[in-house]
């Protein structure tokens, strides 16, 4: 175990080409999917939190269900849609980074929607009573609401990025964990562990843990600022 960890650290320090490729694929998939999820999730979350309209409660239940959706179910769904018998087979997206990003967007957008909805539903009534009392229009009301949401948006993004980087089921199914093409950190750890090659797995595990630690430190700092 000790020698495996020493070798893993040496691998990280030597900038191993395969390790760098896995890291760059992971960064591409996770950054793109989390940014897309943020762009989609923030307005939907704010709308669900701030407005009251028919069907809102159904959408909230649907979103909470999607938050708990097992990643393998999401992977299976996209596999069926894009495989040789699926309606989108002509796109040839199966086992590509594009489909991995799409699957992750579907998995993490509900998290962002949930975080934003909870924060806005708590904040909007008091803010709205004040802004309407002052005679502000809807545009100014939403501008001020967005200003209140700033730290929540940041927290939601970090949470969704953490989920994306730790996710394995969906990306393994739709990406196929192809070396030098669609292999990300989590799928690579599984692959190398199955082969009995622990060094690269431990190296990737160390990087994942470090990233998770960094995300949590940033989240704690932001939450501290938000609570003030």
């Amino acid at each position: 175990m000790g020698s495996s960890i020493r070798k893993a650290i040496e691998l990280i320090l030597s900038a191993d080409p395969e390790l760098l490729n896995i890291l760059s694929t992971t960064a591409k998939v996770c950054l793109t999917s989390s940014i897309l999820a943020l762009v989609l999730g923030v307005p939907i979350g704010i709308l669900l939190g701030a407005e009251r309209f028919p069907g809102r409660k159904v959408l909230l239940v649907l979103n909470r269900t999607l938050i708990g959706m097992p990643p393998v179910v999401c992977g299976l769904l996209f596999y069926m849609l894009f495989s040789g018998v699926g309606p989108f087979r002509h796109l040839h997206w199966l086992f590509t980074v594009k489909l991995m990003i799409l699957a992750q967007v579907v998995l993490i957008t509900p998290i962002i929607v949930g975080v934003m909805e909870t924060f806005v539903a708590d904040t909007a009534p008091a803010l709205r009573e004040t802004t309407r009392g002052l005679g502000f229009g809807r545009l100014k009301e939403y501008r001020l609401l967005m200003n209140e949401c700033l730290y929540s948006i940041f927290s939601a993004y970090l949470l969704s990025f953490a989920r994306a980087i730790a996710e394995v089921g969906a990306v393994a199914m739709v990406g196929g964990a192809i070396a030098w093409k669609t292999n990300v950190m989590t799928t690579a750890i599984m692959m190398y562990t199955n082969r009995g090659s622990f060094t690269l797995g431990i190296a990737l595990g160390l990087i994942l843990l470090t990233l998770s630690l960094l995300v949590n430190i940033v989240l704690s700092v932001m939450q501290g600022r938000l609570s003030r």
């Binding site: 008091a126 009573e129 009392g133 002052l134 005679g135 502000f136 200003n147």
Partner: peptide, 21 residues
């Protein structure tokens, strides 16, 4: 009509900027 509720909401900015809103 201007209305000041019992518990008015302070916007996330300085006191002066709140007033200048």
């Amino acid at each position: 009509v201007g209305y000041l509720p019992q518990k008015s909401f302070p916007f996330r900015m300085s006191t002066e900027k709140n007033i200048l809103q």
